[in-house]
Design a protein around this nucleic acid. Structure first.
Lengths: 118, 118
DNA sequence: TCTATAGTTCACCATATGGTGAAGTATTGG
DNA sequence: CCAATACTTCACCATATGGTGAACTATAGA
């Protein structure tokens, strides 16, 4: 298929399809700042495959790699997930049938936050 | 099976990668219950391609098809998205470092732990 | 009954994805 | 300097994905 312009949401979702990549992200969530080999260690796959996964995550903007000497530290940068959650949240009403109550709760929380001075 | 949940997440995310499929779901969200040709109408692609997209959405459990006469009505069934949102919500604290969000995160984690029976 | 409509299936194609082994590039440490 | 370490790049492979045209099934309507 000819992909003229793969937008951010496309890249985010396709980065999240692969369970190896999701596991890498989950690992970084539990403890951020791992080297490439630390990240690779739990998986059966060889380093070139790990590299490709890191490239996908990097291009999706979900991780940042910083080189120091011969080691590369990978850190989480999950902001693109926010857009994905926003997209999904449109469908929330289908599984959360008491939307009015939830909306009221959210509003009350916001009011509380404002009272606290944001 | 142990990997059942993971397989379902795989399928959900990979169904959501394609912008055509996301547009179809969005269309159903605005007005549920469209026939195959109504769903296909806004897109440039031919019916066989539409069929494949519907198969993917169906296998991901995101739509339901019901035949009546020679027309097939497609309805939304977005429950699998809930799991995807749950997965993403772990990362929410990275872009919303507000206290109430952190509390919600901690609560969700606790609930998850309880569900696992830990 | 005959034909148009609605959808489905099939064979095929180009490109993307996720993996490999082998070889290369920097750094670090002895 | 030399060897081990930590990636990185390359060529290649199998399978998946998203698309097509052609042909098919089944129902609706004149």
């Amino acid at each position: 298929m000819v992909n003229y312009r793969q937008d951010r949401l496309d890249r985010t979702f396709s980065a999240l399809v692969d369970p190896t990549r999701r596991a890498m992200l989950a690992r970084l969530e539990r403890g951020d700042g791992l080297t490439v080999s630390e990240l690779a260690q739990p998986f059966e796959i060889k380093l070139p495959a790990v590299m490709k996964h890191l490239d996908v995550l990097d291009e999706a903007g979900l991780i940042v790699r910083s080189k120091s000497g011969r080691t590369v530290t990978v850190t989480l940068s999950p902001e693109p997930m926010r857009e994905a959650m926003d997209w999904l949240s449109r469908y929330e009403r289908f599984w959360a049938p008491r939307l009015d109550r939830l909306a009221a709760y959210a509003e009350a929380e916001e009011a509380k936050a404002r009272r606290r001075g944001k």
